[in-house]
Structures are given as structure tokens and as C-alpha cells.
């Protein structure tokens, strides 16, 4: 697996956006409620229970359906020509362009370059005492791991199982949980960076931190 970090960075620099294409979920007459270039908001509130900005109303069989935005961003490529017209299911209606911030880009790059070790089951997770001590002292990035190492303890119904690391040898670069957290199955536990990639990764992250405008 070879990843050119410079290319990766360039890619994000040239297009620091995430585009969400908004397609008509079914047939019906569309009436837009936004304008080109308008900023829209996604769902908000503690439980994401407040719907986002109203994008358009799609009416079929006297059932006007209010379609709201699921993302934050700017409305682009709005198909004004379709306003008030009948559209087929899957018809692209607009794009919502979301500008990525520093944290989002960093996370995306890390997920691409690191080897992610996921949680095998829904359980409570702890680092083994040795790993935990090192992480607490802030020496996580000097912690080398290789296949077979005992890194994490999975605790389920008071039964503790030690999980052995499987994957390429490298440095424990990013930890995605705190000792004692309950994680869902498949949630990332930690990411391992290959030693030869480490200097590049750190450099790229540094550059994002300093050069990127939020």
C-alpha cells in the first residue's frame, strides 16, 4: 500500500469540499425553497431532532413532502429549470457543497494512511496497564506495536478478554477512545502508522494545522 501524501494533500487543497448530490427520492412536482449560493444547515439539537433548512417540496398524489438538508453547506448547481416541473426519481436537483475544516481533513487523511484497529464487539474497552501508563505519560507515539502484542482489554459482562494486535507493525498514532468507554462493534479503537510514513504524516498534519483556513 503506497500513498503519496503530497498528492493527498494537493487533492484536498485543490478541492477542500465535500459535495452532496441531492437527488429526488421519488417522482413528483418539485418546488425549490432555496436559491443558488444560499447557505443551508443540517439537522441540529442534541439528538439532531431539529430538521435542517427546507430545500424543496416534492409533491406527489396531493402529498407535499418537505425535504430538508442533511448537511451544512452552500447550495450549488441548483436546477432552477426544474422548479414547478415533474421530476423522475433519482433526478439530481442540486449540490450541497460542504467546506471541510482542519479537523475533518486531518481525520480523513489519518483514516486513509493509518491502519485502523476496530472494536470486534459492542463492549467496554481498556488499554492493558503497560500501554495505558505510556499513553497517560503522553508517549503513545513512541509506542511500537506488532502482531501479537497485547494492547487492549475487551470487557463484556465482567469477562475480560485480552485482544492481540493484528496488522502491520508500526507506531500507535491515534487513539479513538478513553479507558472504560463502551464502543459499538466496528468503531475504531486506535490507528497504527507505519514507521517510514511517520515523518510524512506528522509533516502533513502540521501543514494542515498551520496553512489551512477554517
Amino acid at each position: 500500500m503506497s500513498i503519496n501524501l503530497n498528492d493527498l494533500l494537493r487533492k484536498y487543497k485543490s478541492h477542500p469540499y465535500e459535495d452532496h448530490e441531492i437527488l429526488a427520492p421519488h417522482t413528483g412536482v418539485v418546488k425549490f425553497k432555496v436559491e443558488e449560493g444560499q447557505a443551508v444547515k443540517g439537522p441540529s439539537g442534541q439528538w439532531l431532532h431539529r430538521p435542517g433548512t427546507l430545500l424543496y417540496i416534492l409533491e406527489r398524489e396531493k402529498n407535499p413532502k418537505r425535504i430538508t438538508s442533511r448537511f451544512d453547506g452552500i447550495v450549488t448547481d441548483l436546477r432552477v429549470d426544474l422548479d414547478g416541473k415533474f421530476v423522475e426519481a433519482g433526478q439530481p436537483l442540486m449540490l450541497i457543497r460542504h467546506r471541510l475544516n482542519k479537523q475533518e481533513i486531518t481525520n480523513r487523511i489519518l483514516k486513509e494512511v493509518l491502519h485502523i484497529f476496530p472494536a470486534p464487539e459492542r463492549a467496554r474497552y481498556f488499554f492493558t496497564p503497560e500501554t495505558s501508563t505510556k499513553i497517560e505519560k503522553g508517549k503513545a507515539k513512541s509506542l511500537s506495536v506488532k502482531t501479537g502484542d497485547e494492547i487492549v482489554i475487551m470487557s463484556l459482562m465482567k469477562r475480560d478478554t485480552i485482544l492481540n494486535y493484528e496488522g502491520p507493525s508500526g507506531v500507535l498514532y491515534e487513539v479513538y477512545f478513553k479507558n472504560g468507554d463502551i464502543l459499538e462493534q466496528g468503531a475504531p479503537l486506535f490507528g497504527v502508522c507505519l514507521p517510514e510514513r511517520l515523518p510524512f504524516v506528522e509533516k502533513v498534519i502540521q501543514r494542515i494545522k498551520t496553512e489551512w483556513d477554517d
Binding site: 398524489e61 396531493k62 402529498n63
Partner: peptide, 20 residues
């Protein structure tokens, strides 16, 4: 007695179809 469809409030979560 109405000739129209309605949308289930859980349509987004469970993919419920519009109901006549």
C-alpha cells in the same frame, strides 16, 4: 375518504413507502 397519500413519520429511518 380522501384521494391522496401521506408519508409515515418514520419513512427516513425505515424506508416506509408513501401510503394511500
Amino acid at each position: 375518504n380522501e384521494d391522496r397519500t401521506v408519508t409515515c413519520p418514520n419513512a427516513e429511518k425505515y424506508g416506509c413507502k408513501d401510503l394511500w
